[in-house]
Computed example of a mutant assay.
Amino acid sequence: MSDDDQGEIPVTADRPDSPIHVTGTDHMTLIGSNEEDTVEFYRDLLGMPLVLRQPNLDDPDSTHLFFDTGDGRIITFFVTDDRQSNPQPHRHRAGSVHHLSFSIDAERFADVKQALDEAGHGYNEFDRGIFHSLYTRDHNGLVIELATDKYDVPDDRRGEVLATAQRIRVEDGSDFAEAEHLEAALDELGIDSEPVELPDAPTGAGVE
Rank of each mutant, 00 (worst) to 15 (best):
L46M: 13
R108P: 01
E125H: 14
S103I: 01
H90S: 03
I75S: 06
G70P: 12
H99V: 00
V51T: 15
D59F: 00
Y123F: 14
S96M: 04
P87N: 09
F126P: 00
G72D: 08
V161D: 02
H99K: 01
P55C: 05
S62M: 12
Y135S: 11
H90I: 05
D149Q: 14
E145G: 05
F109L: 14
N56W: 01
Q88E: 14
I130G: 15
A165N: 11
Y42C: 09
G95Q: 06
D59C: 02
D138F: 10
Y135A: 10
D155I: 08
H139F: 08
L52H: 05
D138T: 07
R83P: 04
A115I: 04
L146I: 02
N124S: 12
F102S: 05
H121D: 03
S85F: 02
P87I: 09
Q54R: 14
F78M: 12
A147G: 07
G72Q: 09
I130A: 13
F102G: 03
Q166I: 00
D105I: 02
E118R: 15
A94D: 10
K150V: 10
R83D: 09
G129D: 06
G70M: 10
F77N: 09
L162I: 15
P89W: 03
R43M: 03
S62K: 14
E107H: 13
F131T: 06
L142I: 14
H64T: 06
A119P: 06
T148C: 11
V97C: 12
T76G: 00
K150D: 09
G47M: 02
L162E: 08
P154M: 07
L134V: 09
D155Y: 07
A165D: 10
L134R: 11
V112P: 02
R108S: 08
F126A: 13
T148W: 01
L52P: 00
Q88M: 11
